[in-house]
């Protein structure tokens, strides 16, 4: 299925660099950085996760894939999934409004981006203040609707934090739809809802896929949202890994590997249905 591509800022091409040795040097710096701070740690992590003492080599993995840890993995994926769905629905609505209805698009986009200037932890505290017994929700309704320190709290927090990442790619893809196609659809007899369903939505699918990917990965890796807004039963993988790090680095390493592989598998399945490389072709 051809989904079009998301427009992303262009990288300066290497041919633009006149001196070949400069290009090589730049590449070496980049590759060196990647090697030292990404590849080496991953190799160390893999090595750490193996058990060279008594028992099976993969003992840490059997712990990581058992009982409470497996449930946490499942919970992490489920929370990320729910967050993604909620974010996509809200983001599509907002992006559609900005792209087609708003008079001052840049101002609206500014509002979308504004929260990104505030540290994420402060935003989560903001959300929790909102629902605290002294906060406006409690004061107005006499209840916090069970949001605080619960699954709902985590989802609300993640959604509010990640919404800008969902809005931007969708807005971008909506923005790049040729207005004449929408006009054509109308003249051909399609009512606004039909035009949205048959023309606008299919043509913005690349943005939806990019948004889903961003939000899912960011949500799944979230540490602060469950820590600040969740209850004791809402821990996600990042929290569990951080916790186990304090008493068993090998287990933390094994959990990290399991988590990463699980995410990669999910992305792989997603890719099977929606060709990500086509959507993010310009990356």
């Amino acid at each position: 299925m051809n989904l079009g591509t998301v427009r992303l800022p262009e990288m300066p091409s290497l041919s633009m660099l006149r001196d070949r040795s400069t290009a090589k040097l730049l590449m070496a710096i980049g590759l060196g950085w990647l090697t030292i701070f990404f590849i080496v740690p991953v190799v160390v992590l893999l090595f750490e996760s193996l058990n060279f003492g008594e028992g099976s080599l993969l003992e840490n993995y059997s712990t990581a894939l058992s009982g409470t840890y497996l449930r946490t993995l499942g919970r992490t994926m489920a929370y990320a999934f729910i967050t993604t769905i909620v974010c996509l629905v809200l983001a599509y609505w907002i992006a559609y409004y900005i792209a087609f209805k708003a008079k001052r698009q840049m101002l609206m986009l500014g509002f979308v981006l504004l929260p990104l200037w505030v540290a994420i932890i402060i935003r989560y505290f903001g959300v929790s203040l909102f629902f605290l017994p002294t906060g406006p929700v409690q004061q107005t309704f006499g209840t916090d609707f069970g949001v605080l320190f619960s699954t709902t709290g985590v989802i609300v927090g993640l959604t509010s934090a990640l919404l800008p990442f969902a809005i931007l790619p969708i807005y971008n893809s909506l923005q790049s739809i040729d207005e004449e196609l929408i006009n054509a659809s109308q003249v051909l007899g399609a009512r606004p809802m039909s035009t949205l369903r048959t023309v606008i939505f299919p043509l913005s699918l690349s943005g939806v896929i990019a948004s889903a990917l961003f939000v899912y990965i960011l949500a799944a890796g979230s540490f602060l949202a469950p820590a600040i807004l969740g209850g004791p039963g809402d821990f996600m993988m990042a929290n569990v890994i951080e916790q186990s790090f304090s008493y068993s680095i090998p287990l933390a390493a094994a959990l990290s590997v399991v988590f990463t592989v699980a995410l990669l598998i999910l992305i792989g399945i997603f890719n099977h249905y929606a060709n990500i490389s086509e959507v993010l072709g310009d990356l």
Binding site: N2, G4, D178, E180, L181, N183, A184, S185, Q186, V187, L188, G189, A190, R191, V199, P202, L203
Partner: peptide, 20 residues
């Protein structure tokens, strides 16, 4: 009357065929 109820045929400058 809305454009979708006018029963008009329109050929656009750059054809405006639905690419999908």
């Amino acid at each position: 009357v809305a454009p979708y109820e006018r029963n008009i045929g329109l050929v656009f400058q750059h054809s405006a065929l639905f690419p999908h």
